[in-house]
């Protein structure tokens, strides 16, 4: 009863593993599936660093058990781009200096990735509201909002 086999999709690939039922999705992604781009900050849903996309919606992976992801479609920071081939959103973060230490950045990016898919022309105010669930202790957020606006613009231009 304390271990359970789960089958799910992570970044488009079918994955399977046996996990302790008490392990949350963030820890399973990092330690079971080796995807260490998802960061674990506060572990109680306050900081947003562990945000991943679950079935199309941004969710805190520290507040979801790995066993609850059975059958789910999970997207993590590893799905966005590569160091030499950044996604438009990652490129915007680089261009606008929207990170310093980078700890919160995977959560910022996955929150914005999910949000921008649904909202191609957000206002700065909407971006600020969406980012209210992600804490950054370095940047003061202005550059992050700038990056989100640039990424939204790039997305509109690309379509």
């Amino acid at each position: 009863m304390n271990r359970k086999r789960i089958v799910l999709r992570i970044n488009g690939r079918a994955c399977e593993a046996e996990v302790d039922v008490r392990v949350n999705l963030a820890d399973a992604l990092r330690h079971v599936f080796g995807l260490t781009g998802t960061h674990v900050g506060c572990e109680h849903g306050a900081c947003g660093a562990c945000t991943v996309i679950v079935d199309g919606r941004p969710a805190r992976s520290c507040l979801m058990l790995a066993v609850q992801a059975e059958g789910a479609d999970i997207e993590t920071i590893e799905s966005l781009g590569e160091p030499d081939r950044l996604s438009p959103l990652q490129k915007a973060f680089q261009d606008k200096h929207a990170l310093q230490c980078g700890f919160c950045t995977p959560g910022m990016l996955m929150t914005l990735e999910a949000f921008l898919r649904e909202n191609s022309a957000p206002t700065r105010e909407q971006v600020r509201e969406v980012l209210s669930g992600n804490t950054c202790r370095c940047t003061g957020y202005q550059a992050i909002v700038d990056a989100a606006m640039q990424a939204a613009h790039a997305r509109r231009s690309a379509t």
Partner: peptide, 12 residues
């Protein structure tokens, strides 16, 4: 609902 938590917590 706009005041209920954040986009990530409202998803769950």
């Amino acid at each position: 609902l706009k005041h209920v938590g954040h986009i990530q917590t409202r998803a769950r």
